[in-house]
Design a protein around this nucleic acid. Structure first.
Length: 437
DNA sequence: GCCTTGGTAAACATAT
DNA sequence: CATATGTTTACCAAGG
């Protein structure tokens, strides 16, 4: 691990202080460190590994991870946890009994957490406000929660990166138009595989950590409306949307969001990788039981600076998450349908919309396709579709206008209806009075 | 014994 | 150029 990253011959340890010694790996368990350059043969330290394993069984590490649990239980935004997955699966949401983590017994700060890297990454990402994190943040998160890694050989970072790349559960989120805040890109969890990850988590000794599972949070910097809506939608759509009293404006906004999402989905990259390498996603393959309508793309372009992209993708994620784990989707679909009809009435030239949908469908053929590797993200394909992007944006605007008109019509109708009803009621009372007379 | 899965190392490429 | 990040390949160990 020492030499892991980097191409420079002498590569530095990824963590200063931690050794780089090529051989010293496997000091796992005890976080012992470095310096000794015991260029021992790799894997030569089976003993250490064993000791680490022993520690894993006692789960003492958990006591040191109170932050982790706390965060999870509160959700990334301190919101009450809603766990669609549990609802759907009929599982009860695991509860955190304080006793779980209040035990102060801190014996092994170097205990290796009984979570695989993929789960750690998943937790880190899921816990983040944006449901996406740069590698660096993932490192930090892991380090914060699992001190073990602070003293562990640095190879774990390589493992993290390795997992991000190989595990199809994770997707790279392209930063907006070459704009970058530092190196690398954000990583998010492919909604498709969330259920799998969650399931994997549930299998862990402390599956209760699952309580942290929260619906994708709305991104911080974006305008609140769409996110608010999606958020509300996420929490209430099955209930509220089933009710026929859908506010037209809200509906239009929803539609708008969904459409944008669809457009973005068009840009979703298709995994191009050939199934050469071992499929890391095998454990998290999209559940066959869950039918994912095409393109449930992961949150692409969550970059806050990329607005419509963001909200759209956000919605996409939500839908993905919902679809992949929930059954109440039909209601949402109903809304879309309803709205769709409404918009058609408002304007016939919905050509854009249709074509959009079609396009969407085209791209949806191969969600995670073949290998399922998602490493050829959004960015790549978006680059390829640069030219069409403008067109899409234009279409977006057109649709936007149409939708506004439609919304206006709906509101107008709503107003008329309100007027009529009030008139009717007035008339009724009037008649009533006259009759009494 | 085989297969799957997870962890690790390493080489290399690319971006900043 | 140095470093961080991302990709890929390979090997090993554990468990089913």
């Amino acid at each position: 691990m020492g030499p892991v990253t980097g191409m420079t011959p002498d590569k530095k340890a990824e963590t200063p202080g931690a050794e780089k010694a090529a051989g010293l790996r496997q000091c796992h368990g005890m976080g012992s460190l470095p310096d000794t350059g015991d260029a021992g043969k790799p894997k030569a330290t089976v003993v250490d590994r064993d000791s680490a394993d022993d520690e894993l069984t006692n789960l003492n590490w958990l006591h040191e991870s109170t932050n982790l649990l706390t965060n999870f239980s509160l959700g990334s935004e301190g919101l009450p946890i809603v766990s669609p997955l549990y609802d759907i699966e009929g599982d009860s949401v695991p509860s955190f009994s304080p006793s779980c983590y209040q035990n102060p017994e801190k014996k092994s700060s170097t205990s290796k957490p009984p979570y695989s890297f993929s789960l750690l990454i998943y937790m880190a990402i899921e816990q983040s406000p944006n449901k996406s994190l740069p590698v660096k943040e993932i490192y930090s998160w892991i380090l914060d929660r699992f001190p073990y890694f602070a003293t562990a050989p640095t190879g774990w970072k390589n493992s993290v990166r390795h997992n991000l790349s190989l595990n199809k559960c994770f997707r790279k989120v392209e930063k907006s138009h070459g704009k970058v805040n530092g190196k690398g890109s954000l990583w998010c969890v492919d909604p498709k595989y969330k259920p799998n990850l969650v399931q994997a988590l549930k299998k862990q000794p402390f599956s209760s950590a699952l309580a942290f599972y929260t619906p994708p949070a709305s991104p911080p910097s974006r305008s609140s409306s769409p996110h608010y809506l999606t958020s509300v939608l996420q929490q209430n759509h099955s209930r509220a949307l089933k009710e026929s009293d859908i506010d037209a404006a809200t509906a239009m906004m929803l539609l708008n969001t969904s459409i944008q999402q669809g457009m973005l989905d068009c840009e979703k990259p298709q995994p191009l990788k050939t199934p050469k390498k071992r499929s890391y996603g095998s454990a998290f393959d999209a559940p066959s039981s869950v039918t994912l309508p095409e393109n449930d793309s992961a949150a692409a372009n969550i970059d806050p600076s990329e607005d419509h992209n963001y909200s759209a993708s956000s919605m996409g994620s939500q839908r993905c998450a919902s679809r992949s784990s929930v059954s109440s989707l039909s209601s949402l679909d109903e809304v879309y349908e309803f709205i769709s009809k409404a918009s058609h009435e408002g304007s016939d030239g919905s050509e854009g919309f249709h074509s959009e949908v079609d396009t969407d469908g085209d791209y949806e053929d191969d969600p995670l396709g073949d290998s399922g590797y998602a490493s050829q993200p959004c960015g790549d394909s978006s680059k390829e579709s640069q030219p069409s992007k403008k067109v899409l944006e234009e279409l977006c605007q057109e649709i936007d206008e149409e939708l506004k008109e439609a919304a206006g019509s709906l509101l107008h109708l709503a107003g008329i209806q309100t007027c009529l009803s009030s008139l009717i009621s007035t008339a009724k009372t009037h008649c009533h009075k006259q009759r009494k007379k």
